[in-house]
Design a protein around this nucleic acid. Structure first.
Lengths: 186, 186
DNA sequence: TGATCCATGTAAGCCGTTACATGATTGG
DNA sequence: CCAATCATGTAACGGCTTACATGGATCA
């Protein structure tokens, strides 16, 4: 009965706490810089209330840690109940990945947009992908001990790599279908 | 001044209407079966109000089309104002793609989950990917005339193909890192 | 000296989903 | 005969973001 389906943010918190203690601030960092970006990018406005609720439900414990010159940290730790709730949640069928791309919408309207807009969009995309790939490499290097983490970063690199390859190989082709290709031939 | 940033759903509506007239019902279909899935999957609860607001803002027009035995359709058409609003919105930098994967979170906890759970997750993923790829092929075949559409479906296939290849090549490896690999050797 | 990091939290509001309400027609 | 397709809309509710409120320490 205590399996009142976890919200994404709560799941994120538990997942991070599974590794060890953390504060709300830490959770936020992990979710945007760490190896949880592919899952959710949560803001404080959702993390703090989520942690409070997890504590109320006894899935985590809190410890107040006063500091000099700074506000006291609230250090959270996962409980056994929390651990099993997480594993339960993870055991449910994960459903399809979510992929949302404004870039593809822009691409679709290539014929109706100025070449310059397309050029910038493609350039942006290339850069985003390169950054992501570099970032993944960094994560993988940090913990070479976990086979699961190696697997997911390899997976990420396979997908992002294919994406980048495609952009490199056929980005120009997209720009060439733009509305006003004429001024590119000058 | 009239560029009061379009919400994703409004953008979707305008994008679909750019091709020709449509009803709210049509928009919904396109967003879930058509070539706009990668952008948003909107529900009626957001589409109908969005179309109403677009009409109020004169970005689209409405025509009532009575039918026998069915409620009257409301057929929407984009206006010049709407067309330029769409193109304006599309000209803004698209930002990074959004990718959210519960599957990767499950994978990350491979060491802590039963092999059976992993096996099912991998199997599910494979199936999802195969379906998506088949779907993309269908879209591409339907309109071989648009180079931009060919480009985006090729892009999609490149990415999904890499993803599927990885799953096929190394899915078993993930399952093998599961908590209780012993009972798999029986 | 100004930005960034550390650190917590609340309140308002947006955007969207789910469920409800209604109902004829067509296809398996 | 049941399910799906066609067709529109509203109301309640949920989850998350944004902005606000506060403020010392560290680094460039």
């Amino acid at each position: 009965m205590p399996d009142s389906v976890l919200s994404p943010v709560s799941t994120l918190c538990l997942a991070i706490l599974h590794r060890g203690e953390a504060t709300g601030y830490d959770v936020k960092k992990e979710s945007q810089d760490g190896d949880y970006r592919y899952f959710v990018d949560a803001s404080f406005g959702s993390i703090y209330p989520a942690l409070a609720r997890l504590a109320a439900d006894e899935l985590v414990t809190v410890r107040d840690e006063p500091q000099v010159g700074r506000p006291a940290r609230k250090v959270y730790a996962i409980t056994d109940k929390g651990r099993s709730a997480l594993l339960d949640a993870l055991s449910a069928p994960p459903g399809p990945d979510i992929f949302r791309s404004r870039f593809l919408l822009v691409s679709k309207f290539a014929e109706n947009l100025p070449a310059e807009v397309l050029r910038r969009a493609v350039e942006d995309r290339r850069k985003h992908l390169e950054d992501e790939i570099a970032h993944l490499a960094g994560i993988a290097d940090e913990c070479p001990d976990s086979p699961a983490l190696q697997w997911i970063t390899d997976y990420g690199r396979a997908c992002l790599g294919a994406s980048l390859d495609f952009i490199n190989a056929r980005g120009d082709e997209l720009v060439a279908t733009a509305q006003d290709v004429k001024d590119a031939a000058e």
